[in-house]
């Protein structure tokens, strides 16, 4: 009997589900970020960030979200290690032009995204939650972190903007294969719908890359 959670297909299924869940989170996060460039004042962004940080339902969801990250990362590493072990002697000549380009570099793009995630979390999330040092601001009589000012200050540094945009580009490469791959792993393959899923994956990756990159670039040049 194959155990669902330890079998190769089971591990991939968990990764696929977690990956799609994280993709939804990317859109939510992008929506919140966009408040910084849609409105002149950072108040709307700060109110939204305060809501996300204090609402009880969101807080419960936050745990689920971190669970999703952990599941995707840990299973990803385990699967990759088994895959390396499966070919102990490599080929002298390997012409793998036959397979899709970004699918071959998922663990590499993943490593870059993970490094970005750690830096990104310690710059904003952990700083607000644990490290302290984020200014307070009073909006409509409510005291809250002035995360908007923190983000804008960070994006005044050209090096930080370049690092941020490059990291997002690698996230886009990861999604380009990951999005449609998740559906295949879930067994969702269909003559008519699979090409649509492929197209949706490309559009989704472009939205994420352009959306997340445009915000720091706009802040850098306009604010």
């Amino acid at each position: 009997m194959a155990n669902f959670f330890t079998s190769s297909i089971g591990k991939k299924l968990m990764m696929a589900l977690a990956g799609l869940f994280l993709s939804i989170f990317l859109l939510v996060h992008l929506g919140l970020n966009s408040l910084l460039v849609i409105f002149d004042s950072t108040d709307k962004f700060n109110i939204a960030a305060h809501f996300m940080g204090t609402n009880i339902l969101i807080k419960i969801f936050e745990v689920v979200l971190f669970g999703g990250f952990l599941l995707h990362i840990i299973y990803g590493i385990i699967v990759q290690i088994y895959n390396w072990i499966a070919r102990p002697v490599s080929y002298k000549v390997s012409n793998n032009a036959q397979s899709s380009f970004f699918s071959k570099y998922m663990i590499h793009t993943a490593a870059i995204i993970f490094a970005f995630l750690v830096i990104h979390l310690s710059d904003f999330y952990f700083k607000a939650k644990f490290f302290g040092g984020v200014e307070e601001i009073s909006i409509h009589g409510k005291e809250m972190h002035n995360l908007g000012a923190l983000v804008i200050a960070k994006f005044q540094m050209s090096g930080f903007v370049i690092f941020y945009v490059l990291s997002i580009l690698f996230l886009g490469f990861h999604l380009l294969h990951g999005f449609q791959s998740a559906f295949q792993t879930l067994g969702l393959n269909h003559k008519t719908y699979t090409p649509i899923i492929y197209g949706a994956g490309i559009i989704f990756s472009i939205i994420v890359v352009v959306g997340y990159s445009l915000i720091p670039i706009l802040i850098y040049f306009i604010r």
Binding site: S8, K12, V79, N83, N96, Q98, M106
Partner: peptide, 8 residues
């Protein structure tokens, strides 16, 4: 190994 849907 496991399948990573590369299509090779």
């Amino acid at each position: 190994g496991s399948c990573t849907n590369t299509g090779a």
